[in-house]
Write a protein that binds this DNA or RNA. Structure first.
Length: 735
DNA sequence: AGGATATAGATTTTT
DNA sequence: TCTATATCCT
């Protein structure tokens, strides 16, 4: 292949993928192998070399962030607009399809999207109305059930309902769907399912898109669920007879980084792809441009313990690098302190804090880490908190807007009919709900009718009518306002702003700020600036869709130099020079629950692989031998994943560095107040160490008091439980 | 309507 | 142990 500007600075494998002739392709892209680069260059190649119009290309991702990055990089590369290209998330593109064909799928033009919080509230109401035993059936489980079925492409009538549980869930699913349909509401799973049904059942629509999209590219393919895969298959026309058009699908993914099986991702889709699509060329990207050799060989060794892999081994031309530090902490506080001391050392050597990531298995672990960072005055940022459009006050405001856009939106009405309180209590609402149920109408209409027909009387009727008036008047008044001004008026006239202003405390102040920020966001919301949104959609509906589908990840002050804290899951796709993997203990990572179910352990191991391969220069793994879990002190052992790392790649950190324990705040921490750690270590024992007693047998050092030979030491004996002993007399042996 | 008290439940997350 | 929510009071 002769050199081409698009192929410069790519390795052979990358070139093969970018410059391939038109065909189905499976790109197995290992961590840090330049996956996005390949995708972006491939799209540019299709346009520049194969002279394809951007109109005929669709690229699908899972997150908005990935979609935005891809579009930006393609535009930089080709230097022209990619507006006609469909680049987006599965949900975003499905939404687009439904908007364009709302009549074909039986939705009102102004249908709205329910996020998972809305969905849960909706289910709660429905389950109440079905008079289900609330002890036995929870909205959470019902939500899980329904979404799982939708992800499998199943409607209530597909369920046989043989067992009692399923029969009840089926009933809930049914009632929920009826309620959503009546209110013009679509949940996330429904977006995908409805779009799938549209393509499946409507030949004209399907063929239109098949003709249009000659090339389909799917990122993070290992995370696709059944309905997403079915979607791709339909769009590509795979397996269909007599086609006058030929479509090509490129999937990019890494089976070793599939960590979302628990929410329906089907790793098997990668295998299935080879069966469903003819003449697939598989290209492996195994050269890693991120990590040191040490980190890669450790990660390779760990993942090698999984079976059924497509097979891939990362390598690098880079240096060996430092060994992986392994710190066996006495407890979680010790672990956090060790980490913060290491970060201080890193920072003092002139390195940036934002280059450091602390990764943990579960969110609950962040608290202790935060305390230690706070104490050491190290700034930090936690990834994946509550997002802007998910905040209570913002959702309240949006619910008013939704009601303006669509009076039938029962979920929105329920949320704000008495927020702020306007004398419409539970009793009145019950009557309205019942009325709506009997008449088969929306809550809005029922409320209005019941109040006018004097079914509701006195104060209740007046309150309901006042609410009805408020909404109708708001629509009249703000109908031709700019979006920002409209929202501003709604927030003020509804009394929302006043309600939050009346509350006191820091929390209330932020809420007021957030409401103002929402007005700001509306002012800055420019639909014309949004590629792929050229279909007619009112500014209000455009903004509501934006809020539901892109709930706004980036928080403020992200430019401050700060350590990043996040779960292993949210670290996927990111990289950091220095990475700490914390709490690498049996029962925590792999998690206890994953040990019970087949296949889950392998996913935990992939998660470990993902975590390790985030590190560029240095990886530090730590675990605590004692950890408080739900208030209970528990003994933990090192995770099996640690034993899967070759010992030549590991460096066992034996002792605390001196400075890490020079803390002068005695109240900090639960243990060893008074004596210093160093003084204790003079006794020859360490916290967490295994010891043997002539009579009591073997045990682990838990705690100590005092220093020198007179110090007392607490040992948790394997057979007898914990005992306090005086070091000088106990004649303990190390073992 | 709001404040105090009981009780369950507690991986992982994007859209 | 901590938290979110449900229920019970006033």
């Amino acid at each position: 292949m002769t050199s081409h500007p698009l192929l410069e600075q790519l390795n052979d494998k990358q070139c093969a993928a970018v410059g391939a002739p038109e065909r189905h392709m499976l790109v197995l892209a290992g961590a840090g192998s330049g996956k996005t680069r390949v995708l972006v260059h491939r799209i540019a190649w299709l346009m520049q070399e194969l002279h394809l119009s951007p109109y005929s290309i669709m690229a699908v991702t899972f997150t908005n962030k990935a979609a935005a990055e891809m579009r930006g990089r393609v535009e930089d590369l080709v230097g022209s607009s990619t507006r006609a290209m469909w680049i987006g998330t599965f949900h975003g593109l499905a939404h687009r399809l439904l908007r364009a064909h709302y009549m074909d799928v039986g939705l009102p033009q102004n249908f709205q999207i329910l996020d998972s919080d809305d969905q849960q509230r909706m289910l709660k109401r429905i389950m109440r109305s079905l008079n289900l035993d609330e002890k036995r059936w929870s909205p959470k489980q019902a939500q899980w059930f329904i979404n799982a079925k939708k992800d499998e492409g199943l409607r209530p009538h597909h369920l046989d309902g043989y067992d009692f549980n399923e029969r009840t869930y089926k009933e809930i699913y049914d009632a929920y769907q009826v309620a959503c349909d009546r209110a013009g509401l679509v949940d996330f799973a429904e977006l995908l399912l409805r779009a799938h049904e549209l393509l499946r059942d409507n030949r004209i629509v399907r063929e239109h898109y098949q003709r249009r999209f000659r090339h389909l590219l799917v990122d993070e393919f290992q995370d696709t669920n059944s309905i997403q895969y079915a979607w791709i298959k339909l769009l590509s026309g795979a397996g269909e007879e007599k086609k006058e058009h030929q479509n090509f699908v490129t999937i990019v993914g890494d089976d070793d980084q599939s960590i979302y099986g628990w929410r329906g991702a089907k790793i098997e889709n990668i295998h299935q792809f080879n069966r469903d699509f003819p003449n697939v060329e598989t290209i492996r990207l195994e050269q890693n441009y991120r990590s040191t050799n040490t980190i890669l060989s450790a990660a390779n060794s760990v993942i090698a313990n999984n079976s059924d892999r497509l097979g891939k081994e990362l390598w690098t031309e880079g240096s060996t690098g430092d060994p992986i530090d392994l710190y066996a902490a006495y407890n979680e506080i010790d672990e956090a302190r060790y980490i913060s001391s290491q970060i201080e050392a890193w920072h003092e050597q002139g390195n940036a804090l934002q280059d450091v990531a602390l990764l943990y298995r579960s969110n609950a672990q962040s608290r202790v880490l935060e305390e230690a960072l706070l104490h050491a005055r190290i700034p930090y940022r936690i990834y994946g908190g509550l997002r802007f459009f998910d905040r209570q006050e913002v959702k309240d405001a949006l619910a008013y807007l939704r009601l303006l856009a669509n009076r039938d939106d029962d979920a929105a009405l329920e949320r704000v009919i008495n927020t702020p309180t306007r004398g419409i209590g539970a009793r009145t609402l019950d009557i309205v709900r019942e009325g709506a149920r009997q008449r088969g109408t929306s809550l809005w209409l029922a409320a209005k009718q019941l109040a006018t027909e004097k079914v509701l009387t006195g104060r209740a009727a007046n309150a309901v009518l006042a609410f009805v008036d408020l909404i109708e008047q708001l629509e009249d008044e703000t109908g031709d306002y700019s979006l920002g001004r409209q929202v501003d008026t709604v927030i003020k006239s509804s009394g929302l702003m006043a309600m939050y202003q009346a509350e006191k405390g820091e929390k209330a102040e932020t809420r007021v700020e957030n409401l103002k920020e929402l007005v700001n966001a509306c002012d800055n919301f420019d639909q014309l600036d949004r590629p792929g949104e050229e279909e007619e959609l009112s500014p209000l509906n455009g903004f509501l869709a934006h809020a539901a589908l892109e709930s706004g990840d980036e928080q403020a002050d992200e430019h401050q130099d700060a350590v990043q804290l996040m779960t292993l899951h949210s670290a996927k796709g990111l990289e950091f020079p220095l990475v700490f993997m914390c709490g690498v203990e049996e029962g925590l990572f792999p998690s206890q629950q994953s040990l019970d179910e087949a296949g889950r352990l392998a996913e935990e191991r992939r998660l470990c692989y993902v975590g390790m391969t985030r590190a560029m220069q240095k990886l530090v793994i730590s675990y605590a031998e004692n950890r408080r879990v739900y208030g209970q002190e528990k003994l933990h052992t090192a995770s099996r994943f640690i034993a899967e790392i070759p010992s030549e790649n590991l460096h066992h950190v034996r002792m605390q560095s001196r400075r890490s324990f020079s803390t002068d705040t005695p109240s900090y921490g639960r243990f060893h107040t008074g004596a210093s750690h160093e003084a204790f270590e003079e006794t020859g024992f360490q916290l967490g160490q295994r010891v043997r007693h002539v009579k009591f047998g073997e045990g682990t050092v838990l705690n100590y008091e005092g220093s020198g030979p007179q110090s007392r030491i607490q040992v948790n004996f394997d057979d007898l439980g914990s005992k306090w002993l005086v070091v000088a007399y106990a004649r303990l042996e190390r073992c």
